[in-house]
Design a binder for these strands. Structure first.
Length: 408
RNA sequence: GGGGAGAUUCCAGAGUGGCCAAAUGGGACGGACUGUAACUCCGUUAGCGUAAGCUUUCGAAGGUUCGAAUCCUUCUCUCCCCA
């Protein structure tokens, strides 16, 4: 691929370049020195559940990898003990060595859905951070001023609103930056919320007389509820390992206004295809149709084309079709429910057996609200009796609970 | 070291002796609508009970009272200000 084409490809969707010409310069450097760029990807082994928000950054990294550059994955086992102050200020319990290893493994497994993990280097930052003594630590700290640290919006906000900031939090960005120095990163990527931490790495490198890393920040993907950021704590994520039907359904549930953003950031479509779909939206096509295409595309990326087709069919049948009988019911045998055949079977008891985690009160409310159907008929009375002797019984509880209870 | 504020149901946040299973908002769930699980509107949101009603819940443990989320004591934790 020509240099200009590479730059064009790599620039797509990137929100921040630091400095502005960083990408061009680094690529030129790589060409000049006949070596791949070393691109850093940091990971905090406390929460190894990757979702589409992470994927925005990872897909960009894959482009670099496909162009022959080297991805260096940093497992932040040491920094995990401190806690990244980004976002919520909650102290984290220290992780055991065992736990860190397990998390690292699941993390790498998930990465493999997007990156070629075999070609990545994997490093643990305890390797160098644990070895530092006080002298070296102080020397590191001396390279940054308080004013610089306080520029970080998160710290600034908290300081302004009289919220506590622990000293160790102030140090976190330096440690993350120190990782860049250690592995001689040419480039670091992250979401825009990582800009400060990433630029710290650049500063530390330059302070040591080394070339500073370029920083590229990808936009933060909004959550499926339309809120500012997809994040696990907001419960608005689509996980990379989720089942096809689940993934598809979640895409269908995003607010229509988010479609352009999702189209750009999470799909695999070519720029021309993206533009075509945007045009269709602008021309007033039902957003649902475009959403289905996006949903299929996403499922295809993380599962398969076959899975995508099935997920679409499932959605049409389960959500869109109005009939009761054609729904997909989960088969359950009478015997597995452990009901007493000698007792009269109340609807409430059956629902409780099918949904053991719901309380009787909750189930009764569902019935009163008219969301429980038995064999195609809405039943509101929790105490109506059912016949266990009968043939298959089809019951719907809530929007998602379709069960078919059958004799053994 | 000194002084002050606070801990409420999933979350935020009212409530300062009975009208409190506890306002309001968010979230979640459900219904209506829609060939979207979107948008909008409406409703529900401690458990048990056919029901009357009963039980648990307002940081923890005791106490006062006919009656406590509300008053008292001790404890745990959090935050702020001054030094």
């Amino acid at each position: 691929m020509h240099a200009a084409d590479q730059v064009h490809l790599l620039k797509e969707n990137v929100e921040i370049f630091l400095p502005h010409q960083a990408l061009e310069e680094k690529l030129a450097l790589a060409r000049q020195e006949h070596r791949p760029l070393r691109i850093k990807l940091g990971f905090d082994p406390t929460a190894p559940d990757l979702h589409l928000g992470h994927a925005v950054v990872l897909k960009k990294l894959r482009q670099f990898q496909e162009l022959g550059h080297t991805i260096v994955i940093i497992i932040g086992d040491f920094t995990a003990r401190i806690g990244d102050p980004t976002g919520k200020n909650k102290s984290r319990p220290p992780l055991s060595v065992q736990q860190v290893l397990e998390n690292a493994q699941t993390y790498v497994n998930q990465l493999s859905k997007i990156l070629n993990v075999d070609k990545c280097q994997i490093r643990y930052n305890s390797e160098w951070l644990e070895a530092m003594d006080m002298t070296e630590t102080i020397r590191l700290l001396s390279q940054v001023t308080l004013a610089q640290i306080m520029q970080r919006t998160d710290f600034n906000n908290r300081f302004q609103s009289n919220l506590p900031i622990s000293l160790h939090e102030l140090v976190y960005p330096l440690l993350q930056g120190f990782d860049s120095l250690q592995i001689q990163a040419d480039l670091e990527m992250g979401g825009t919320d990582q800009l400060f931490n990433c630029s710290m790495g650049r500063q530390l490198q330059e302070g040591q007389g080394a070339p500073g890393q370029a920083v590229l920040c990808m936009p933060l993907l909004k959550g499926i509820d339309g809120s500012a950021k997809m994040s696990k704590s907001e419960h608005n994520t689509i996980g990379l390992t989720e089942a096809p039907q689940e993934m598809f359904g979640k895409i269908m549930s995003i607010p229509d206004a988010l479609l352009p953003e999702y189209l750009h950031l999470v799909t695999d479509f070519t720029p021309a295809e993206k533009q075509a779909l945007l045009t269709r939206l602008e021309q007033g096509e039902n957003p649902m149709a475009v959403k289905k295409l996006i949903g299929s595309n996403v499922v295809q990326q993380y599962h398969s084309a076959e899975a995508a087709a099935q997920a679409l069919a499932f959605f049409q049948k389960q959500v869109q079709s109005k009939g009761f009988t054609e729904k997909e019911f989960t088969a359950v045998s009478w015997s597995s429910l452990a009901l007493d055949p000698a007792q009269p079977l109340r609807l409430l008891d059956l629902c409780k057996a099918l949904k053991p985690h719901e309380s009787n009160s909750t189930l009764k409310r569902l019935m009163e609200a008219g969301s429980v159907w038995v064999n195609g008929t809405k039943v509101r009375d929790a105490h109506s009796l059912l016949d266990m002797e009968s043939d298959a019984l089809r019951i719907k509880i809530g929007k998602r609970g379709f069960f078919e209870v059958t004799p053994d």
